[in-house]
Design a protein around this nucleic acid. Structure first.
Lengths: 234, 234
DNA sequence: GAGCAATCAAAACACTGTTACGGTGTGTCG
DNA sequence: CGACACACCGTAACAGTGTTTTGATTGCTC
């Protein structure tokens, strides 16, 4: 449960804590420093991680970390800023997880494995996943930064598809981005259905997930996409 | 914009308004009646429809309809109950929309058309769609009712797949529910990516959507799903 | 007409995010 | 060396929220 969360604390490393203690002719030494920032982030992640963003109260958060709400405002601007920072961390962990799928000489298999890793991360970290993809309250990172982050997360998938095309495993009639997007969409869709409680009853999505991915990959094989034209049956 | 919303007001029909005005030896005549219930639902739908559930304030809602917040509590229990009723309506509209895709003698084509209708509803009614599938704040309908509603929404898809299997357009090795789920997942995933602002830059999902669906359908053709085994390329 | 009880608007409560205020403590300057 | 200045930051105030309680109103029943 708290496994992933602790990694948030470790990621940025608490090294240069006393970096800009004073910038001009100043007064009190800062206690709203990088170390406190990480403690807040850590604690907020834990709460969001198992009760969602709505359950995160700045007052409670500040009390837990034994500071005041002012700290959140001086370090993150406001609640949205705090969640935005969490968003960044969630992206970071997500990218890291997907990067553990190393390319092999079977690109189509890599695509499947990336899809499985996608699901594994989401199921293991449902609230961080929610921050990434569903929570409307996270405005995050000035709108224009987001696409770049998004493309970063699914770059490995595009690469795998490209290699698959060169290896003849995928049709070259469509751009690799298009094929990758379809895989991304299916993974995201099936995962989202489960996490939002909308998975159909009496049907374990987990069992169908890989088969669905394989069917999609099969459908993008050379020459297949033309054959699926409308007038086909009887 | 307000087109779909007004239909919410008309759906239940304000017929038996004076049904149970008095049940025992009572006092004041009720003003928190079915008509008021519909007015509240209508107004709430309008707000949620274009500003989301978070922007819905019960005080403001009551003021708009010229009643008090007590009305919401006596008619819906609480805010969650109100949103739950909205959820029911959103499901209803969604099912209605998907039902407009009539079966033809090309079941595979029907599957594609259902997928397109899915997307069309979501894009036209983003906030109702959000209530259905993403908004965590909607606990809705006692948990146990939901699966039945869900299955209702994607029953037409299962039927189309079943017919496709009999027509030889889909492999019969997988249950129709599995194939339908994959289509449902892809549609939901691609739509969700767009609505949550996570669509990849420089790539119009709208343009890829139908192609992705067609690839998936192609991948479920007879004998295809076995061929996508791991060791395939060089 | 008196009693009574259901009804419902308004006020109270406990919470939220956010902003304004002031005591605190440190460095600089006279 | 003391007084000033000023950034810092905990506290309290503000404007909201959903929800619960209160208490006047109202119209049937006896």
């Amino acid at each position: 449960m708290a496994r992933q969360v602790t990694s948030i604390c470790c990621d940025a490393g608490g090294a240069f804590v006393t970096a800009f203690e004073y910038d001009d002719a100043m007064a009190k030494p800062k206690t709203h420093d990088e170390a406190l920032r990480l403690r807040l982030l850590h604690r907020a992640a834990a709460t969001v991680f198992d009760r969602g963003t709505a359950a995160l109260s700045l007052r409670q958060l500040a009390a837990d970390v034994k500071t005041s709400t002012t700290a959140v405002y001086s370090l993150f601007g406001n609640k949205a800023g705090l969640l935005s920072s969490l968003y960044q961390e969630a992206v970071h962990l997500f990218v890291e997880r997907l990067a553990t799928v190393h390319p092999t000489d079977d690109p189509a298999g890599d695509v499947i494995r990336i899809g499985l890793a996608y699901r594994e991360y989401a199921v293991a970290n449902p609230h961080l996943y929610a921050i990434l993809f569903s929570d409307r309250s996270v405005q995050c990172s000035s709108e224009s930064d987001r696409p770049r982050e998004v493309v970063e997360t699914y770059r490995p998938l595009i690469d795998a598809v490209s290699r698959g095309q060169r290896a003849g495993q995928f049709s070259s009639e469509s751009a690799p981005e298009v094929i990758a997007l379809s895989v991304w969409g299916m993974a995201h869709g099936l995962v989202s259905l489960v996490l939002s409680g909308n998975e159909p009853p009496e049907l374990a999505v987990a069992d169908c997930y890989e088969r669905a991915l394989r069917a999609l990959v099969a459908g993008w094989r050379e020459g297949e996409e033309r054959a699926s034209g409308v007038a086909d049956a009887m």
